[in-house]
């Protein structure tokens, strides 16, 4: 067995050009990710009440789509990504990736996905090549093709081959993040989970990564779930955006519709910042009220 992917699939252009998606009603496409009533709680310490990190989330993401998840710190974005990457089990609900259940068909799901996390998690003393070769082998990829692919992807991200033999710890944070992106792409995932891939990058690197994500969407058969704290990035890249607050998806639509919504319903300027503020904007009082009502619920 080699890479989990049929090479035909990788090069097939997406049928829908960017931007058109929200204008025309589209034909039903294959579902890349289907989550139904997903809930996840964490218990920290013995006595404390569990934290509901994800609360009854349902999602449907189509093949070829870039789906953005926006939310405040601690709202559950990374937890959601981890649930889809088989790193956490679901407390309740189901999640399927291309029809495969993340818990029952774990191996099949793992072969289809990859994830970029906010921290570039590598063996820091190993070189990018050594790290990538290791990762590729775990996905059953032959070393030689892993090497040429890695060089190609990293060149595209502005990292020259010369840098790939030295320990990764000698690279800047942004360069490490690009290597992390290369690692995820190397295995040709058909669902790519990107958890704040551009956090900590300088403006130029950020743009490079964003352009690369666009290129992926346009030339590869990749479906992407992306979390970010950068509103411009979300607007530029995402076909649809879900806003998560306290573990719940509170609103979900195309960036244009979301902006129109805050303009019409709240009389605000139609910007993504205002969308974010409106749907995650809890005042301190709200927070306290919620705690109180939850306490009552418990009794």
């Amino acid at each position: 067995m080699q890479t989990g992917l049929d090479p035909e699939l990788k090069t097939a252009p997406t049928s829908q050009p960017a931007g058109v998606a929200d204008a025309a009603p589209r034909a039903p496409r294959e579902t890349a990710l289907l989550a139904e009533h997903v809930t996840k709680e964490f218990r920290v310490g013995r006595k404390k009440r569990p934290v509901k990190a994800i609360n009854n989330v349902s999602l449907r993401i189509e093949r070829g789509e870039i789906y953005g998840v926006l939310g405040a710190n601690g709202s559950g974005k990374s937890t959601l990504i981890r649930l889809f990457s088989t790193l956490l089990t679901l407390d309740s609900g189901t999640a399927e990736i291309f029809g495969k259940d993340v818990q029952r068909d774990e191996m099949a799901v793992k072969q289809m996905i990859n994830r970029v996390s906010v921290d570039a998690a590598f063996f820091k003393k190993l070189s990018p090549f050594e790290n990538l070769a290791y990762a590729a082998k775990l996905y059953g990829m032959p070393a030689a093709s892993a090497r040429t692919e890695a060089i190609r992807i990293l060149a595209r991200l502005g990292i020259s081959e010369k840098r790939l033999g030295r320990p990764l710890e000698q690279m800047s944070r942004g360069m490490q993040q690009k290597v992390a992106i290369a690692r995820a792409l190397l295995t040709s995932p058909i669902l790519l989970l990107m958890d704040e891939p551009t956090t900590g990058l300088d403006p130029r690197s950020k743009l490079e990564v964003q352009a690369f994500v666009e290129e992926l969407r346009d030339t590869h058969d990749a479906t992407i779930v992306l979390t970010t704290h950068d509103m411009a990035e979300a607007e530029r890249l995402c076909d649809r955006i879900g806003i998560i607050d306290g573990g719940r998806i509170v609103v979900e639509d195309t960036p244009d519709h979301l902006k129109a919504l805050v303009a019409s319903d709240h009389g605000l300027e139609p910007t993504m910042e205002n969308v974010f503020m409106t749907f995650t904007g809890k005042s301190l009082d709200d927070d306290l009220d919620e705690e109180k009502s939850e306490d009552e619920e418990e009794e």
């Binding site: 790193l87 191996m107 998690a121 590598f122 063996f123 820091k124 990762a135 775990l138 996905y139």
Partner: peptide
């Protein structure tokens, strides 16, 4: 310690 645990556990290996 290295921070790679999640990546190894996410890989399709037994």
């Amino acid at each position: 310690w290295e921070g790679t645990l999640e990546y190894t556990f996410m890989a399709p290996i037994r």
